[in-house]
């Protein structure tokens, strides 16, 4: 009797554990690495990077902990083993190289800039402005008094920002217009490529502190953006023309319906 009870108890326990595993499984987001699973259950310093990373552009684009810090995201026991390529957090001087493994062009821009040249001499690294885990999509909003004043006066940065602001606005506007046209079946591939190239050139200016160069480059970008805008204006004008023709066609059909109805009534 006792043995049967034990068997029944062990079976019930098995069923309960299976049920628990099945019901808990959906709570853990599918695709979470062991890094997130482990750090997510910690407190204090261990937990600190999880939430900021979850709100970052890296998370949006599927760049996880292991893509920067190395290690094995599938094996919790050896996730942080140097044998599995774990790098940990870089030292200050190594930060540009750490981020620059992916952001190659931006690393070069940074190293050529006054910020990059001051590396190790009190100058900022990537994470000083962009943060280490809550990295957001870059916009001109990053250049602001609060950020810049941490190290130097905002005067020069203000001039840089105002020189770039118009380009930023134009880029955003053109992107939105392209998206709208794409949703209406317009082939925007070529214009998107051109805009992408200009956006890249513009982003390369983000690490520049030479105001003269920024003004020159911004003017060149603005000229190219103006050409793209011209193309979009032409497409919009064509679509407007189609609507005018459409209004006439609808009016014509309406008039035909009225006339035909009047003609029909003359026979009745």
């Amino acid at each position: 009797m006792n043995i049967f009870r034990k068997i029944a108890f062990s079976r019930l326990t098995g069923v309960a554990i299976t049920f628990l595993l099945v019901s808990v499984a959906p709570v853990m987001a599918e695709g979470d690495t062991v890094c997130i699973q482990c750090h997510g259950s910690q407190t204090g310093r261990g937990l600190a990077p999880v939430k900021p990373w979850q709100t970052s552009i890296h998370a949006v684009n599927g760049i996880s902990c292991n893509h920067c810090h190395g290690g094995d995201p599938t094996d919790s026991a050896n996730a942080m083993s140097p044998q599995r390529g774990f790098l940990g957090a870089p030292e200050e001087l190594a930060i540009p190289g750490f981020c620059g493994r992916c952001h190659i062009g931006i690393k070069a821009d940074y190293l050529h800039s006054a910020h990059g040249r001051a590396l190790g001499k009190g100058g900022p690294t990537c994470v000083t402005c962009h943060g280490s885990h809550a990295v957001q999509k870059v916009s001109i909003e990053l250049i602001n008094e609060k950020n810049c004043s941490r190290c130097h006066s905002y005067d020069r940065a203000r001039i840089i920002r105002s020189a770039m602001e118009q380009t930023e606005t134009t880029l955003v506007t053109l992107s939105q217009r392209l998206e709208q046209l794409k949703e209406r079946g317009v082939d925007t591939a070529e214009l998107e490529k051109r805009l992408f190239a200009q956006r890249n050139s513009y982003h390369s200016l983000f690490h520049e502190v030479n105001t003269a160069r920024i003004t020159d480059e911004s003017a060149k970008i603005a000229a190219e953006l103006n050409l793209i805008k011209g193309r979009l204006d032409k497409i919009d004008a064509e679509h407007h023309q189609r609507k005018v023709i459409g209004a006439f066609a609808v009016g014509g059909a309406l008039l035909a319906a009225l006339l035909l109805n009047l003609l029909r009534r003359t026979y009745c």
Partner: peptide
């Protein structure tokens, strides 16, 4: 003529959707 009137009324709706 009644058929043609109906076709013209249909065209009004058809063209409205097509162009707008």
């Amino acid at each position: 003529l009644s058929d043609m009137t109906s076709v013209a009324i249909y065209l009004v709706f058809f063209l409205l959707i097509l162009f707008f």
